[in-house]
Design a protein around this nucleic acid. Structure first.
Lengths: 143, 143
DNA sequence: CACTATTAGATTGTGCACAATATATATATA
DNA sequence: TATATATATATTGTGCACAATCTAATAGTG
């Protein structure tokens, strides 16, 4: 019993810690752009394709409207995105990027590299980590 | 630029998603014990050694007092822990387990196994994941 | 057309994380 | 022994996560 319920013998705690540590390492760089990590994720989704509905963004990030609605309102307040109800279906809110929102991408593109350097992680390690994580995630999500 | 700032090409997002997914998988089992995932982590620290100060717990979980103080008060309210100021140094709050808190351990010990099964992750995968995560974490934390 | 079910978001409430600041106690030093 | 410094925890405020509920709009059915 002592061995099982030990922080050191569990996997959940290191994963949880690493996730927080990565976000912590992103913070100083994202601070310069005046966005949070979650807002950065939303913007990444929009930089790939735009406009998208709240629902589409939520599905890609596995976040519900209770998280997204206030977050998107903050991004709108900061003039990075626009929120417009679709005329053909008033239930749907389409999220688009402003000029500012588009411009942010060129500044953000440098960050992942900087974070990897700050954490002194090699690209081999990153790849190995990503593969095993995706393998496990694909069992519960995606597939 | 398109390749770098893509959810699929980043490692941070899968880690963040896996962390949330693990907590999500723990939830139904922890609900039965009426504790949250963060409270479960605190209890694990206490099951290993008891009593411990707020500071000691915070160092092990990398959590600050702004997170721990209200969390510990909730655990106290639920009668799982006790909070006592040390007579010899009134600044220090010592956290101990109640009878209830001790008993919870025998129920909690079964959970990690159940979660691994629910996520259909093999112990080989768990080990591989843990090793690469610890390797990366050791560069920024611990060492 | 009226009625039901479905869908898309919004709202509310709880519980973290974490930065910044405050408070209270203890220790060190002149 | 005053006073400065350090230490331990608490408080406050912001921003997620997420469950549960609500509202408004649309789509399907007889």
């Amino acid at each position: 019993m002592d061995e099982i319920l030990n922080l050191k013998s569990q996997v959940c705690f290191p994963i949880y810690t690493l996730s927080r540590e990565i976000i912590h390492q992103y913070r100083p760089f994202l601070d310069e752009l005046e966005i949070t990590y979650s807002q950065y994720l939303v913007l990444m989704v929009l930089w790939e394709q735009e406009p998208q509905t709240v629902n589409q963004i939520g599905k890609k990030l596995y976040l519900d409207s209770g998280t997204l609605t206030p977050l998107l309102k903050r991004l709108e307040l900061k003039k990075f995105i626009t929120r417009t109800r679709k005329p053909s279906d008033e239930r749907v809110v389409e999220i688009g990027l402003t000029e500012n929102g588009h411009e942010l991408k060129s500044k953000a593109v440098l960050i992942p590299q900087k974070v990897a350097e700050a954490m002194s992680v090699s690209s081999e390690e990153l790849l190995e980590l990503k593969e095993i994580v995706m393998k496990i995630l694909n069992k519960t999500k995606c597939s």
